[in-house]
Amino acid sequence: MLYLFCGFYIHKRGFNMISEILQTLPQVLVDGLTLGAVYAVVAIGYTMVYGILEFINFAHGEIFMTGAFVGTSTLLIFNTAGLLSGMPGWVAYILILVTAMLFTGLMGVGIERVAYRPLRKAPKLITLISAIGVSFLLQDIVRFIADLKTGSFLVTGISLYNENVKIKTSSIWDSFDDAFLKTNSIIVLAVAVLLMIGLDIFINRTKWGVAMRAVAQDRETASLMSINVNKVIALTFFIGSALGGGTGVLFAQQYGTIDPYIGFILGLKAFTAAVLGGIGNVRGAMFGGLFIGVLEMFSAANLGIITSGNFGGEYKDVVAFIILITILIFKPEGLFGRAVKEKV
């Protein structure tokens, strides 16, 4: 009798839980995909560099952060110059995106030239240390400049698109609540998707894109085809860094306030996304980013519900990483990775 009762109770609780999870699902997906798109584009930078040099560019998170600062300060400069009121928001948006992407792209090329290329024949660990050094350097330079100009290293920018839009997901299915979406989320998603499609086409359809893959597979032989390997590596850094910097702008627009340390955690998660997708695989990185974004938002929204309030949303990263590690235990090469590295 007691047994039956318990069974019924658990069943009922389970049902409530599912309906609660369902209610928030549209919002989870909206927020998760937005965040995931940011992870995905940053993850591409890690995976591209790894694919070609087999080393983790740990400074990539800081390149993202620098992009956020360049975009934000460009916008602030426009504003003080009185230019902002005269131009449509989307024009300003494109301008700051392009500025930040050019800036970080060239910065990436410079970093490779100065900090990595001289170490190309050194053990990968040494290059990694160099990358960590570059990270600290970038954090401190950005902090110094931000402090100098604004008196604080926390910088709040100007949001170009911050209205909230209600999506009537409840009309699709009445178990769903409505979802709320910042207009900027749409821009984040649209720009991220455009960047990813553009990159995918570049890598798979253009001569330099194919050369990039050729260099990633066999640098020595690629050079025998008159491919200038250093040029291809510089191009890889330019593209990867520009993508990272552009995403920084999207991030700053989405979340308002930035500081010189935002690249660290975000970089770790994007790096994890790259590993989850199979490091070196660009499409894998895109998928991994979206996956982690949704997983993180799902945990944030539902952990309390699932554990009856014992663990709250603040444990989202723990849960996300437990799931990731579990996946990687069963598929260590990542979801889209190659199982064995082929010999040449």
Partner: peptide, 25 residues
Amino acid sequence: AHVPEGRRIFSRLTVKENLEMGAFS
């Protein structure tokens, strides 16, 4: 043009792409 020992074709590129790389210049 150097055809290296062990062929060293780009195994994850298609035949078409391999040929295109040969014609990179």
